[in-house]
C-alpha cells in the first residue's frame, strides 16, 4: 500500500509540476493545488498506513495510527486553502489589471 501511494504521489507531482510550468495563471494555481494534495498524501504515508485505529483514545484499541502526520496535515490543509485563495485572487487581479493571464506576457520589461 505504501509503495502504491508513493507511486501515486509521484504521478500527481509530475502532473502538478507540468501544470505549474505552463504559462496560464489558472493552470499554475490548479497545479499548485494538486501538488499540495499529493504532499499531504505523502506525509500521511510516511507515518505508516492502516495500522491501529483512529487516534482517538476513546476507541479502546490496541494501537493507534500515527497522530503526528495527521496533526501536520490538518494545519497544511487549512494553510493550503489560504494560500490557494491568495494566489487565486492575485492571478484574478493580475488578469483584470493587465488583461492577460499569460505568464510570458506578464514578465515585465528588460532591465527593470
Amino acid at each position: 500500500m505504501e509503495t502504491l501511494m508513493v507511486i501515486l504521489v509521484g504521478i500527481l507531482i509530475s502532473i502538478g509540476t507540468y501544470l505549474i510550468l505552463s504559462k496560464q495563471l489558472l493552470r499554475i494555481v490548479l497545479g499548485a493545488s494538486i501538488v499540495g494534495h499529493s504532499v499531504n498524501l505523502l506525509i500521511i504515508t510516511s507515518g505508516g498506513l492502516k495500522r491501529g485505529s483512529a487516534p482517538l483514545l476513546g476507541e479502546k484499541a490496541a494501537g493507534f495510527a500515527d497522530a503526528i502526520p495527521q496533526a501536520l496535515i490538518l494545519t497544511a490543509i487549512v494553510i493550503n486553502f489560504a494560500v490557494t485563495a491568495v494566489v487565486l485572487v492575485l492571478s484574478y487581479r493580475a488578469y483584470k489589471s493587465f488583461g492577460t493571464d499569460d505568464m510570458e506576457q506578464l514578465r515585465g520589461n528588460e532591465n527593470e
Partner: peptide, 12 residues
Amino acid sequence: HHHPGGGFIGGL
C-alpha cells in the same frame, strides 16, 4: 477534545 472535530473543522 475527545472526538473528531475541533477548532479548525468546526470553524470551517
